[in-house]
């Protein structure tokens, strides 16, 4: 619940707990520290930008592993489609220079998220930025704007939903999952 409200400390604890479980496994699959970092980063960005959902998740492990599995799957598909040569002649064909158009670099994602934030209705944007940029808690924002904490919380969650919809509509890989991953 604290993560859902944007508590970075609580999210750090979650991150560290699952890093121990994800990193060794994914590194075995990719055999590459860089690729492992990329998959873990993409996984946690999705969890972070969907933090409002965590409060409904009964089995966090299954939820987080599902997102990580989706990210590994997207990654392996990207790798395989980049391999230009098949069968006997991979040695003779140089590696594709076609960098992954679909791979989302964090800055680009940040830019998209900011686009999404700038498109939020004014009040929603204000509350979201008080939470994220000023680091204000739900209670502090509620006091400052003379709103109920429940309204502030709902506004923050609505903003996150809008951001995810924007990312999915922008065609960014893996965001459809975040729109409708169900909770068990």
């Amino acid at each position: 619940m604290r993560i859902a409200e944007g508590d970075e400390g609580a999210f750090s604890i979650l991150f560290e707990a699952y890093l121990d479980r994800l990193k060794p496994f994914i590194e075995k699959l990719t055999a590459s520290p860089d690729d492992t970092r990329e998959i873990i980063q993409e996984t946690f960005v999705r969890i972070w930008l969907s933090r409002d959902k965590l409060q409904h998740v009964e089995q966090p492990a299954a939820y987080i592993f599902r997102i990580a599995a989706n990210q590994y799957h997207l990654y392996i598909r990207r790798r395989l489609s980049q391999e230009r040569a098949v069968s006997g002649y991979e040695e003779t064909v140089p590696q594709s220079s076609n960098t992954t158009e679909n791979t989302l670099r964090l800055n680009e994602l940040q830019r998209l998220v900011q686009d999404a934030v700038s498109r939020l209705p004014e009040k929603r944007r204000l509350i979201f930025q008080m939470s994220r940029n000023e680091g204000m808690s739900v209670r502090e924002i509620a006091t400052a704007l003379d709103l109920s904490p429940k309204t502030v919380k709902n506004t923050l969650f609505a903003a996150l939903t809008n951001i995810r919809q924007y990312l999915a509509a922008a065609g960014e890989a893996g965001w459809w999952l975040m729109l409708f991953l169900l909770f068990r």
Binding site: S12, F15, W48, Q110, S118
Partner: peptide, 17 residues
């Protein structure tokens, strides 16, 4: 990496929305 993840939805200071 964790910091970068949590910064994705913060506005960049030199780059107002």
């Amino acid at each position: 990496l964790l910091m970068a993840v949590m910064d994705t939805d913060k506005a960049r200071e030199e780059d107002p929305v």
